[in-house]
């Protein structure tokens, strides 16, 4: 995920302080990890340098720097370009899970149990997401659904892998 483009996009609805930007990002996209303020600051500096944002004003008073940022026309164009460019589909073959299964089989551990445990963990997360989704607003739902569909895809792969474990075991040990 491109943090600079996300922050730019958040600015499109109106000028914000750096601190507000971090809060808005965390609220909408930071379910897994929240943004460090320093990250916001460095990103904003880079965007300023590239002319994609400008400083709208500085609030007087103590504490951390309270600059207000606004998006420039070039910034709006940049967000538009980013949204229009497709993401490169990521192959998941090198995922840790695959590595774990192959390792388990190689070392003669119970791969099925590993899979079951993993599935239970996936489901646990999916339940949590489902619960959050049913209570949340539209943006929450979209985010949760995205994660849910990814997790579901993982799980489907898990199911398939579980069904093919015997064949896989033969190939790996051969």
């Amino acid at each position: 995920m491109s943090i600079s483009h996300t922050l730019l996009g958040l600015l499109e609805s109106g000028p914000r302080h750096g601190y507000d930007l971090k809060k808005a990002f965390d609220e909408r996209f930071g379910h897994d990890r929240s943004l460090h303020y320093g990250q916001v600051y460095s990103t904003m500096s880079r965007l300023l340098k590239n002319g994609l944002v400008e400083v709208d004003g500085v609030e007087a008073g103590g504490g951390p720097e309270r600059k207000r940022y606004a998006i420039t026309d070039a910034g709006i164009t940049d967000v538009g370009q980013w949204l229009a460019t497709p993401e490169k589909p990521e192959p998941y073959l090198q995922s840790t899970l695959y590595t774990k299964i192959v390792l388990a089989l190689l070392t003669g551990r119970d791969a099925a149990e590993l899979l079951d445990t993993q599935r239970a963990e996936h489901l646990r997360l999916m339940r949590e997401l489902t619960r959050r989704k049913t209570g949340g607003d539209l943006a929450d739902q979209l985010i949760c659904d995205h994660a849910l569909f990814h997790l579901e895809a993982d799980l489907r792969w898990l199911e398939l892998a579980a069904a093919r474990l015997d064949k896989l075991a033969k190939e790996v040990s051969a």
């Binding site: 996936h122 489901l123 339940r127 489902t130």
Partner: peptide, 10 residues
């Protein structure tokens, strides 16, 4: 057989 549906369960 759908995990997304199963996710509604306890």
């Amino acid at each position: 057989h759908e995990t997304r549906v199963a996710a509604y369960s306890d």
